[in-house]
Design a protein around this nucleic acid. Structure first.
Lengths: 150, 150
DNA sequence: ATAAAGTCTATAATTTAAGTATACTTTTGA
DNA sequence: TCAAAAGTATACTTAAATTATAGACTTTAT
């Protein structure tokens, strides 16, 4: 049940880009900066951000002073969306996937025990990842920081 | 977040072996039979059952009339145990694994947003898989069968 | 014009997954 | 006692996915 490096790096990068700045604007961030701060190979990150851009979750600006920034407000981008773009469906087995259903070959799907359970697992994962936005993540981090300060 | 074929086949085989028979005994089942009923390549299944045996979840009997059977009652074997043997830790990232923790390299683990969320995901998966025994699965299948009958 | 950025595509390196092969041991029963 | 039925053990192969690197190109600000 592992998240790939691709997925992990992409999530880290998106969370970083969703970190609010003084002014209200979505911060514009360079690949190089993300790469250094999160210790992600720059060329690998490049591909990941490009995929996210092509999926419509990021915008970019070329040239001097350019970089990437969120295409939508942080509270409208969920972790589930990001993971699906980078790692594919959330479901542990294809036959319980909402996004990419495929039969799994059991004689009778309706009475397949594995399917019944894995369907619950997929729903639990989806509830968490589709229910958590980038803004939620950063709010949570802030709360933890508050707690630790005292 | 995908379950491997190894994990999937192993779960299917275990669920099948946990299917109760008339007498109370744990049924003894041959590789060949499981392989045919579940459409799993026999030689691949062989390795999977061996791993499960070496992990103490199955016993076996060699020779004519031999086969595999559950080492413990079906209600004492959880899906989580099986998945861990065949596919490794449930956690999406190593740094939230209970069984096989490893640092994931973020500057500060306590305030890592990804870690906070993935920890929830791992707990949700664990709650379901460690909370569901082979007996639970078959009871559930029986219930669905009842429902469909009417 | 030049340097700083992203774009695009190819390819290399590594790892993992999935499946096959083969030689062996144990047990039963004709 | 020996042949057939079963599991044991390990090695090997193949294919695919993952992770990463390389290089040539485009856009933009100054």
């Amino acid at each position: 049940m592992r998240l790939s490096k691709r997925g992990e790096y992409g999530l880290r990068a998106m969370i970083l880009m969703a970190t609010p700045t003084e002014d209200g604007h979505p911060p514009i961030v360079q690949i190089k900066e993300i790469s250094q701060r999160e210790k992600i190979p720059a060329k690998f990150l490049e591909q990941i951000l490009l995929a996210l851009k092509n999926a419509g979750m990021l915008h970019s600006k070329m040239g001097v002073g350019g970089g990437y920034y969120l295409a939508r407000p942080a509270k409208e981008i969920t972790l589930g969306q990001i993971v699906r773009v980078l790692d594919g469906p959330l479901a542990p087995v294809k036959c319980v996937s909402q996004m990419a259903y495929e039969p799994c070959g059991c004689p009778d799907e309706e009475t397949c025990g594995l399917r019944l359970v894995m369907s619950d697992v997929r729903n639990a994962i989806s509830a968490l990842l589709d229910g958590t936005s980038l803004a939620d993540v950063n709010n949570r981090v802030d709360k933890v920081r508050e707690m630790l300060k005292t």
